[in-house]
Amino acid sequence: MVRFGVIGTNWITERFIDGAKQVDDFSLTAVYSRTKDKAEAFAAKYDVGQTYTDLDEFAQSDIVDAVYVASPNSLHAEQAIRCMQHGKHVIVEKAMASNSKEVAAMIKAAKENNVLLMEALKTTHMPNFEVIKNNLHKIGTIRRYFASYCQYSTRYDKLKDGTVLNAFDPKFSNGSLMDIGIYCVYPMIALFGKPNKWQANAHMLYSGVDGQGSILFDYDQINGMVMYSKISNSFVPSEIQGEKGSIIIDNIQSLSKVEIRYNDGTIEDIAEPQVENTMFYEAKAFITLIKENKKQSDINTFAVSLQTAEVLEEARKQFGLVFPADKA
């Protein structure tokens, strides 16, 4: 069994645990929160007896082998590095950190302490992402990547009423790009590498973060475009366009439906069945890496995480969003 401790007591942690429980070798043994009441209430849901409010005590725990970090983005680097310094393997919720400097420091800590570090970007571990990669050759020379993820946030209603929650607070290194825009950018880099250049724009909210935005990317032979939003919905599919056809993706975040539409009008359904809680796939991949004594994912590699952080950071600079963490 791989004994997990979790940092963060929100819905995404619950989602991860519910997905990870489908993996035979997963065991939840400890919960960390900055407040005792939250830690104990969350632990009670899963019949976990050990809770921590001191990060050092949690990191040194002898009942924890691996840690899932799902705190606000601004806390990821410090918490992950502290855990890795005490020999814990770490899977960190996306975005991996506030900026590329923090991501580089996390990678350095993983190497120095000989532990596994992986960004919890679930999409790239899903069966249908592998399907997309394996079928790219069918559409000929790739010419365009387009991804859209626009999902109206109920937290935006709170913001309009004057309450700034974590999701829209720059001190937590949040905003639309960091929260959901990354679902568009990360797969592009995983498939095609880091672009040569990019141009970003965004609509900024009074709280100091972006509510929505778009980015144009240039490769040698490919144009890329992503659009994302937490203040509006979109029902437009994503697609990868080639000279012989296009791969149509119903939702870049879930990949539940994938098909190829060829230039001659024929349509090929290439999607495979996926489990309902798709966080299962990242949990399974992470646990498998631990059991195989590997220190880096060959899918969510250090290079992809670092390149994604560099792209997001430069995009934010272009539309004027600088986090407090960027000045540290």
Results as ranks from 00 to 15, higher is better:
A190I: 01
A190N: 14
L191H: 06
L191A: 07
L191D: 07
L191K: 08
F192L: 03
F192H: 04
G193K: 06
G193R: 02
K194H: 01
P195R: 04
W198K: 05
Q199Y: 13
A200N: 01
A200D: 02
N201E: 15
N201Y: 00
A202I: 07
A202Q: 07
A202F: 09
H203C: 00
H203L: 03
H203P: 00
M204G: 03
M204I: 15
L205F: 05
Y206V: 12
Y206I: 06
S207Q: 04
G208E: 14
G208H: 14
V209T: 00
V209P: 01
V209W: 02
D210K: 01
D210T: 01
D210L: 00
G211C: 10
G211Q: 07
G211N: 03
G211T: 00
Q212A: 15
G213N: 02
S214F: 13
S214K: 15
I215Q: 13
I215M: 14
L216T: 15
L216V: 11
D218G: 08
D218P: 01
D218L: 13
Y219S: 11
D220T: 15
Q221Y: 11
Q221I: 05
Q221L: 11
I222K: 10
I222F: 05
I222A: 11
G224I: 08
M225C: 07
M227V: 12
M227L: 08
Y228V: 00
S229N: 03
S229C: 04
K230V: 13
I231F: 08
S232H: 09
S232N: 09
S232W: 09
F235S: 07
V236E: 14
V236R: 07
V236T: 14
P237M: 05
P237E: 07
P237G: 06
P237Q: 07
E239G: 05
E239N: 09
I240Y: 01
